[in-house]
Simulated assay, not measured.
Amino acid sequence: MVFLQYPPCSTCQKAKKWLDEHGVSYDARHIKEENPTVEELRAWYSRSGLPLKRFFNTSGLAYKSLALKDKLPSMSEEEQLALLATDGMLVKRPLLVDENFVLVGFKPAEWQEILCK
């Protein structure tokens, strides 16, 4: 299981603490230093069943400075995936990725349901 995080992010810190408290083992990955690739993002998006927009950090400075709120609707999925792969700060975090699931953002109840069966 891979835990993609931006360490200074308070939500990522809460998610990491939750994983540690629940004894969940994971490989931590700094999302800004080791950006997800287009191939990874495509696979995670496909596995998640979520709309691609959910993978964007819509409250982030990069998202806002690129005016993506207005641009995303006219971009193809491939263009969006390629854009996400250019900057880890565009990607919603934390991400918890396993071969069976992809969790985007930290929702304790959802994580509990999936990880603590």
Rank of each mutant, 00 (worst) to 15 (best):
A15I: 00
E34T: 13
Y6L: 13
S48E: 07
E33R: 07
Y26P: 00
V24A: 02
W44M: 13
K16I: 00
D20E: 13
E34G: 01
S10T: 15
K14R: 08
S25T: 12
D27C: 01
D27I: 12
V38P: 02
E40H: 03
R47A: 14
P36T: 09
I31E: 07
Q5P: 13
C9Y: 03
A43T: 15
L41M: 08
E21D: 11
S48C: 08
A43I: 12
H22G: 02
Y6S: 13
Q5T: 14
K16D: 03
R42S: 14
K16S: 07
C12N: 12
H30V: 09
D20H: 10
W44N: 11
S46E: 15
Y45N: 15
Y45D: 14
Q5W: 09
H22A: 02
G23A: 08
N35C: 13
S48G: 08
P8H: 04
W18I: 00
Y45S: 14
A15R: 05
S46I: 03
S48W: 04
D27F: 00
K14L: 05
P7D: 06
N35L: 11
T37Y: 03
Y6N: 14
H22W: 04
D20K: 14
A43R: 15
P36E: 04
Y45Q: 15
T37L: 07
E21T: 06
K32T: 15
D27Q: 10
Y26F: 10
C9N: 13
K14V: 00
A43L: 14
A15S: 06
E39I: 12
A28Y: 05
R29E: 11
P7C: 05
D27T: 13
K32G: 09
P36N: 04
L41V: 10
A28R: 04
A15C: 07
S46F: 04
